[in-house]
């Protein structure tokens, strides 16, 4: 089963998003601490990373950039999501594959995952 890592520092969002994703044939790894990300990517080999932009001290865009710059992880699809204001340029510069504004529709989330996940039609 394909894996998705969800990284958000808010417990409620993490819980809700995990529930939404688990309705599809996906294995969800929910992380609250950005520090845990680097260990979990190699161990889980996820197909997609859904990550909040504003993570306390960390910034999802910066993390995304470093992943995209790392040849070991550059195949990983990254979707950023945020409740905060951001400039489109900063998202473009991060190399993220998609951006989702909170709150978002479940259908939109499925559609994005569908488009970016490795096997098309996997999530429906």
């Amino acid at each position: 089963m394909q894996k998705i890592i969800v990284l958000d520092d808010n417990e409620d969002i993490l819980e809700a998003v995990s529930l939404v994703l688990k309705r599809k044939p996906l294995e969800v790894v929910a992380l609250r601490d950005p520090g845990e990300l680097m260990n979990n990517i190699p161990s889980h080999e996820p197909a997609l990373l859904l990550m909040d932009i504003f993570l306390g001290k960390d910034d999802g865009r910066r993390i995304c950039r470093s992943l995209k710059d790392n040849p070991s992880f550059d195949q990983l699809s990254v979707v950023l999501f945020s409740a905060q204001t951001y400039t489109p340029e900063s998202v473009e510069a991060s190399g993220a594959d998609a951006i989702l504004d909170k709150p978002f529709s479940v259908k939109t989330l499925y559609k994005i995952i569908d488009q970016l996940a490795i096997s098309p039609g996997m999530v429906k």
Binding site: N10, D12, I13, E15, A16, V17, L19, V20, R23, A83, Q84, T85, K102, P103, F104, S105, V106, K107
Partner: peptide, 24 residues
């Protein structure tokens, strides 16, 4: 307003996710 607005978005995100799942 900016802070309050962004703060409000987080619970609304969860609410929307649950409500949509329930509807589905």
């Amino acid at each position: 307003i900016g802070i309050a607005g962004h703060e409000l978005k987080t619970p609304v995100t969860s609410m929307k996710a649950y409500a949509e799942i329930v509807q589905e």
